[in-house]
Design a protein around this nucleic acid. Structure first.
Length: 109
DNA sequence: AGGGTGACGATCA
DNA sequence: ATGATCGCCACCC
C-alpha cells in the first residue's frame, strides 16, 4: 500500500462530527512529519471529507475561497468553534497508535 | 542531481 | 494574538 493510499485511508476514518489535523493524520497513517503531503494530497483528491482536516490547534487552514464552506460543513455536523478554532478537546478524533512506516533505509516485509 | 514548492507545525519577537 | 522564520519532505520539473 502506498503512502498516498494510507493517508487517504486515514482521512476517511475521521467520523462525522469529529476533526483531525494535517499532522495528526500523517502520524495516524504512519508517516510522522509529513503534514505537508497530507495537505497536498487532500487538496488534489475528490470525494474526501476534506473539511474534517484542520491545521494545528484546530485552526482552519484552507484558502479563503473554501474557509467559509469548511466551517459551515463542520458546524452542520455539530462541531463547535471557539473563536477561529475548533475545540479540539472535544472534537478531535484520536487515531490509534500507528507504527511509523517511514523508511530511512531498506527492509519492509 | 538540484532547486523550488506547499490546504504544515513549532518557536520567537 | 499576529507575523516572520525555520525545519521538514515528497513531488515536480
Amino acid at each position: 500500500m502506498s503512502m498516498h493510499a494510507r493517508i487517504l485511508a486515514a482521512i476517511r476514518k475521521i467520523p462525522r462530527g469529529k476533526v483531525s489535523t494535517y499532522g495528526a493524520v500523517a502520524r495516524g497513517a504512519g508517516y510522522p512529519g509529513l503534514a505537508r503531503q497530507v495537505g497536498g494530497i487532500l487538496r488534489r483528491s475528490a470525494g474526501m471529507p476534506w473539511h474534517r482536516v484542520l491545521g494545528a490547534g484546530g485552526e482552519i487552514n484552507v484558502p479563503r475561497d473554501y474557509a467559509m464552506e469548511q466551517r459551515f460543513r463542520l458546524e452542520s455536523e455539530g462541531v463547535i468553534f471557539r473563536g477561529r478554532r475548533v475545540d479540539m478537546k472535544r472534537f478531535e478524533f484520536q487515531f490509534p497508535r500507528a507504527r511509523s512506516l517511514r523508511e530511512k533505509s531498506k527492509k519492509s516485509s
